[in-house]
Simulated assay, not measured.
Amino acid sequence: MTTQTIPVASKSVRELIAELADVEDQVRQLRTSQQSVDAPTQQALHPDLVGLLHREADIVASIRRTAATLRS
């Protein structure tokens, strides 16, 4: 599983939307939790999920900033 690390500020809205769709597809394909190694009876978030959700938030924030700039 790979996510692009190109700064979102340097991408067009079209590129951001395409990347957002890709990230969302990756999130849907991941198991959201896994058994904790330290406590097998507890569930822990999948480590890749956390990174994907942060990337998704960055992309959405950039799209919102761009939209606000275009409305100004």
Rank of each mutant, 00 (worst) to 15 (best):
H54R: 13
T41N: 15
E56M: 08
Q26E: 09
Q35Y: 14
D38A: 15
A18I: 07
M1N: 12
Q29H: 08
L52M: 11
V60D: 03
S72C: 04
S10N: 10
V8T: 14
T69C: 02
R31P: 07
I6S: 10
S72Y: 02
L53C: 06
S33L: 08
T69K: 09
H46A: 08
K11C: 12
L16N: 03
E24V: 00
Q26K: 14
D58C: 01
I59T: 05
R64M: 11
M1L: 14
I63E: 05
L16P: 02
P40Q: 07
T5L: 12
H46D: 12
T69E: 06
A39T: 15
K11I: 02
L52D: 03
T69W: 01
L16I: 04
Q34P: 04
A9C: 06
T5W: 03
Q26L: 09
R28F: 09
R14V: 03
T41F: 14
E24C: 01
Q26P: 01
P40T: 07
P47W: 06
E56C: 05
V8A: 12
I59D: 01
E56V: 01
V50M: 11
S36K: 09
R55D: 04
P7E: 10
A21Q: 07
R31K: 12
V23H: 00
V8W: 02
T2L: 12
I6D: 10
T3Q: 05
Q43S: 15
I17V: 14
V37M: 13
E19Y: 00
S72G: 10
R14Q: 12
T69F: 03
A44P: 04
V50C: 05
S33G: 10
R64V: 12
K11R: 13
P47L: 08
D48T: 11
L45D: 15
A67P: 00
L45P: 14
A44N: 10
R14C: 01
K11D: 00
A21E: 08
R65Y: 06
R14W: 01
A9P: 00
I59L: 09
S12A: 09
Q34I: 14
D22M: 03
L45R: 08
T41E: 15
Q29R: 10
L16T: 02
R64W: 03
T66S: 11
S33A: 13
R31Y: 06
I63R: 04
D25Y: 03
V23Q: 00
G51N: 14
L20E: 02
S72T: 10
A61Q: 11
S10I: 11
I59S: 02
D58P: 00
